[in-house]
């Protein structure tokens, strides 16, 4: 950044600014936590935890969470919140499964699942962007209704017996790597590219930074928020369909738990940027922390009850970190 043409560009050295070092330490905190967890579990059970097989195993376990967390990231970039990503994934997966059970072809069933998920996003988008409901209220309502629809679609039972070739989406391993990992990478890269290199991404970040500033800069704020929710619905549907293929079954609540984990991952990731904005890189670190925690604690043999307590503590830590940071702004 050698701006020789601007002789007046001298650093103002504001007195209130943190020193760059402590600033970096703050931002690196979440990454350090991930590294610390890896070192901890690696030291406890080196042969089991750090093996290639287990790394692949962790990646496979977090692939679907990564996709749904990417959906939540998009909504949180615009400063909103989507409580319905989990049930949307469930409903989309269940729809595809039910249609395949009735003999619909695989591509058509998948397409229908994606359409259903996108539609839920569209409803959220209309409610929040155009009818000015708070994102919390709107998505709480869709969370409830869509959760009910998932029970209706599955008839309350667990659907199974989809065609074998459908299972390859979630269960096949090209080059020895589970296919869901590839999907997660594709979705994460796509969301990252959109957020970073497109005008749409720029608008989303501007709306999240300050909706009023964005509006007065000529951004169509309503459209931007609407699109964010729609994209989140679509991405959640991808996650839900992969989950059904991975498990070979679709229940009425199979992906619901992903919502809270996704929110936790995004919050963790928000601590990474100085601006405190949601971002894909940070979200993936957050997803990594959650995945490593769960896998590591299983390997060490800690009970699931205690694991759940720890997950909550991690969320609190993340929110606290974000709050400490945003006080700077």
């Amino acid at each position: 950044m050698a701006s020789t043409e601007a002789p007046a560009a001298v650093a103002p050295a504001a007195a209130t600014e943190r020193t760059p070092f402590s600033q970096h330490l703050w931002q690196a905190g979440t990454v350090l936590a991930l590294i610390a967890l890896i070192i901890l579990f690696g030291a406890l059970r080196p042969e089991a935890f750090l093996s290639f097989g287990n790394v692949r195993n962790i990646l496979a376990q977090i692939a679907i969470l990564a996709i749904i967390a990417a959906a939540q990231t998009v909504v949180m970039v615009v400063g909103d919140f989507d409580l319905s990503v989990g049930v949307t994934a469930t409903l989309a997966g269940a729809t595809a499964a039910a249609l395949m059970g009735d003999g619909t072809s695989i591509p058509l069933a998948i397409l229908a699942g994606l359409v259903v998920g996108t539609l839920v996003g569209v409803v959220n988008g209309v409610l929040v962007a155009y009818m000015n409901l708070s994102a919390f209220v709107a998505t709480l309502a869709t969370l409830t209704s869509v959760g009910g629809l998932a029970f209706i679609v599955t008839g309350g039972t667990t659907l199974y017996g989809m065609p074998e070739s459908f299972f390859s989406i979630g269960q096949s391993r090209p080059f020895g790597i589970p296919l869901p990992i590839f999907f997660a990478v594709i979705v994460a890269v796509a969301v990252w590219v959109v957020l970073r290199f497109t005008t749409l991404g720029r608008r989303w970040y501007a709306v999240g930074g300050s909706a009023e500033v964005a509006r007065l800069s000529g951004v169509n704020v309503r459209l931007a928020r609407f699109l964010a929710f729609t994209v989140a619905g679509f991405l959640s549907a991808i996650g839900g369909i992969i989950l059904v293929s991975r498990l070979g079954s679709a229940s009425a609540t199979s992906a619901n738990n992903y919502m809270l984990l996704a929110v936790a991952a995004v919050f963790l990731g928000m601590t990474i940027l100085r601006s405190g904005a949601a971002n894909v890189g940070g979200t993936l670190v957050g997803v990594g922390i959650i995945g490593v925690m769960s896998n590591g604690l299983n390997i060490v043999g800690v009970s699931t009850y205690f694991q759940q307590v720890l997950t909550g503590i991690i969320i609190i830590a993340a929110v606290t970190l974000s709050a400490l940071k945003s006080r700077d702004r």
Binding site: A48, N57, L247, S251, I299, G301
Partner: peptide, 27 residues
């Protein structure tokens, strides 16, 4: 593992059990 593994939610039990056994076999 020394004790009964507890699934947290019946709705996601298939996925949870899948993780229990995968992780246990890794270790």
């Amino acid at each position: 593992g020394g004790e009964i593994k507890q699934v947290l939610s019946p709705g996601t039990s298939q996925e949870e059990a899948l993780k229990f056994v995968t992780d246990y076999l890794q270790a």
